[in-house]
Amino acid sequence: MTTASDTEPAPPLVLTPYLFLLPAMLVTLAVVLWPVAETVWMSLHNFILFKPRNVPFIGLGNFWRLLHDEVFWLSLGHSLVWISLVVGLQFLLGLATALLLNQSFWWRSLARSLVIIPWALPSVIIGLTWTWMYDYNVGVLNDVFLRFGLIDKPVAWLAQPNSAFFSIVVALIWQGFPFFAVTILAGLQTISAELYEAADIDGATRFQRLRFITLPAIADVIATALLLRTIWVANSLDVILVMTGGGPGYSTYTLPLYAFLKAYSGMEFGYGSALAIMLTLLLLLVVFIYVRRAARELDQ
């Protein structure tokens, strides 16, 4: 990671910003630093939770094993498709929603509050409710589709590899798009009305206004929201865990789910930690690319 001093003229050493940062640093580091250090230690050992008397140091053995583990590569592949689909579609739907909600109409405050509901529910409920709606025997989706003649016999949504994967993607888009809608909506509020008035005078079409005024003005907010959401989705596993537990077979395995199952079902905390660290390193790569790119704009 390049430090600020590599690319910028050395800024004067003032104390104020550090003082402003101190509380945040204290709160987060106090809680995170020790557990993460412990996890790194575990990843270098063959640490099995129920064998506390026998924890041999194996260096990078867990990482070596991981590179030869086909389930790791499979999960990584799923994770990539997964993150791009879920975050991408959440974002597009969220952006559309925010743009609609930013206009003025009589039921706006109602619409704004209703749209947030999926996001206001715990993942356990979301997972169970969607599993139940997708149910082969008593699910409401099969019932509705049958009534409208879209299918001629019930579909076992969660029992086939592809449909299981996309069924969960739909549930996750539902869960997460309100986040983008709300975040982008707040970003839209910071755009000065004068800009639009000027554009109106110049006779800009609505598409031109979106392309040349709205989007550039909220680019920073969008980029940050995308980055944070990518990290969040990349790490989340609760909805998958409830809906399929990774199945059928390995069809819905993602990296964090695999790490979780290794750690809590196999009690192999050493290997689970290695998987988690690998995931963090891969995410770090994404962030590095983002920060390099964003740095140019941020540091103006």
Binding site: V138, V155, A156, A159, G247
Partner: peptide, 22 residues
Amino acid sequence: TPASAASDGFRQIVDGFKAERT
């Protein structure tokens, strides 16, 4: 067996039986 057998857990088999589907 139902087409959903591969993913059915405890809840699903009981629901299916109650709904007279198995």
